[in-house]
Design a protein around this nucleic acid. Sequence first.
DNA 1: TTCCGTCTTGACCAATCGGTACAAATGCTG
DNA 2: CAGCATTTGTACCGATTGGTCAAGACGGAA
Lengths: 192, 192
Amino acid sequence: MPSQKQFGIEEVLDRAMEAFWESGYEGTSMTRLLDRMGIQKGSFYATFSSKHEVFLQAVDRYVRVRFSEFEDAMAGLAPRQAIERMFDSVQEECRYKSGSRGCFVVNAALELAPRDDAVGEVVRRTLKMHQEWIAELLVAGQEDGTITSTGDAASVAKALLGLIIAMRVYARAGMPASYAVALRSQAGGLLD
Amino acid sequence: MPSQKQFGIEEVLDRAMEAFWESGYEGTSMTRLLDRMGIQKGSFYATFSSKHEVFLQAVDRYVRVRFSEFEDAMAGLAPRQAIERMFDSVQEECRYKSGSRGCFVVNAALELAPRDDAVGEVVRRTLKMHQEWIAELLVAGQEDGTITSTGDAASVAKALLGLIIAMRVYARAGMPASYAVALRSQAGGLLD
DNA sequence: TTCCGTCTTGACCAATCGGTACAAATGCTG
DNA sequence: CAGCATTTGTACCGATTGGTCAAGACGGAA
């Protein structure tokens, strides 16, 4: 077929991400990974240097795609509504199928962060970024009066992000949807 | 040395737990596992039936030991103080070394729950138990007036447990101690 | 049509995976 | 002391691990 790349790198990376997301790094063998990516060993090693490298690129892509989806969905919303919307969308995502995959970044963090500096680095940067993003919304909400919370924005942001993380841990653990609902409703308590 | 068991099963199980706790199930090879347990392959398979079985027993032991430690530490405390103490102890545990191992149950959940029913079952039972335990404290605290929260105890308990989970996720991801502190302080906000 | 570059296919690699088997060493117990 | 259960050490198993390599099939550009 050749002379030009036959598979889109991003498309193939998306499928790698799905595989890693479901089964983790060690849990996804090269055989299954190639199967899911739909390419051959030869093409794989001609494009990426190693399984580890693909994993890093998959995490990176996940973060970029997810975050821009978030920003798009909340563009133009008032600060408080944006935060509520964020929780709604995570809750919805946790509900739609009992076997949720959780959050790829959190999965990666727990599996690899302690022994893989590259992964740890990406994870920490991502969590920090997300926390700062929430904190900015909080400050804006405090200024326009829709958020009456007393605590400082950075602390509340860390707690809100914590609740989001917990929602996705509950989901991957297979807990009932009532857990996601509870977290979503309690999040409101941190805003006033 | 024999004719009687030379190694204590619980002692050896403790060391297996440490190894799994640090590196996960797939990330701990039999070679390293035996090394950490300090026994030989022969003794291993004479005592346990498989790596998977040991993992399950390690999780089980972790839950039993941890939970009874919790209950001991909070025996005799007033409900609200018990909850605050719980957060203090988790926060302290997250702080004392930068490379925290997080929570063994949560680590196991994210790695295996979606594809290992036995693990999933234990994880869900444990989370539910912990949530109910917190909920009971909340009800007691609402009755004696030290907790003025409006929401129903079950919901708040799910959120508080979520914050504890998040603290340990942050810790394993290597986030700064300020994250644990923030979560601990925001937890108070859910009680009044 | 020829050629170049890419992809496919499959054989192959050493290393390691979890697990088995067994003889030899060991030390309590009767 | 003899008997016996248990540990140890090692050799071994087939399967799978992540990764390499080369031969050939194919398509676009010249």
